[in-house]
Amino acid sequence: MRAFDYVRATDTREAVRLLADDPAASCLAGGTTQLDLMKDGILEPPRLIDITRLPLHGIEHRGESVHVGALVTMEELAADATVAERLPMVREALLLGASVQLRNMATIGGNLLQRTRCRYFRDPTVGECNKRSPGSGCAAVQGAARMHAVLGASERCIALHASDLAVALVALDAVVHIQGPAESRSVPLTEFYLTADVSPERENVLEHAELITGVEIPLPPSAARSGYLKVRDRASYEFALASAAVLLVVEGGTIRQARVGLGGVGTKPWRAYEAEHVLTGAPATTATFLQAAEATMRDAWTVPGTEFKVPLARRTLVRELQNVSRVMA
């Protein structure tokens, strides 16, 4: 790790001001991505602003939404009674997302900003990485690519967004609340992320001196059922090869509402609008599910090593649609 100044911020405005004062400074929350990347030599901020003691730790229920402070940990959110009852796909994504130790550290804000696991990105001795050094190329495209993305991917970058939680949250139309030096703003999570085929070096719309203060999760209708399926080699403690967050409202065998997020396949947490389009108004049958899965993966871009993710993602989605619709029936 390169040497850095450590500053502990005590209130949100001060944290934002400290960030604004130093264009190279970084925030430190749970540390599970930030410190890991600093040890790898990928991030070398001369100044770290510890934001863990800012008053952003609450989970509040406001009408038909849950407002989650940015510093709530994954374990805390998973333990929330409303989340357990109304947002099973969020709870499952959290519990499948990391070990208990990491979930006790990692914050919701930090989780949304987690960086790719691409080992070509995470090794500073690899010269070709458009994410680290725009225009240098992508070593992963010609390398060992099994864990990489097939949606929002191109020869410029195939780095996977490894979050589970964000997959569930994009499907739910969660909104990110952001505090900047001058003003605050709210961005739908579906518009928060940028794909790597467009801008490998820029993963989201957050500006330097902006801080995520919280996430607002709209509660689905009480008739909705949801779930999160994560497919991976190990039975636990691994990033997804493919995952599906599914929410359905089915009435009399017809799908009235469908929300679908896909993980393990995209350079960002993937909202599968094509699938939702196919599903909405259609009968809740396997034939419909197959059609939806087909539509979702139509634009996949693969390299040797990632081809299997296309059928795997389809099957994962079909399985979770079956699982969730079976609960309804």
Binding site: R119, A139, G143, M147, R234, Y237
Partner: peptide, 22 residues
């Protein structure tokens, strides 16, 4: 890595060994 000879998964997050649940 087939081009450079670099180990492409040289961490415990990337090189998978069996965990308790396996």
């Amino acid at each position: 890595d087939p081009r450079t000879g670099r180990i492409a998964n040289g961490t415990f997050a990337d090189y998978l060994v069996a965990v308790n649940a396996d």
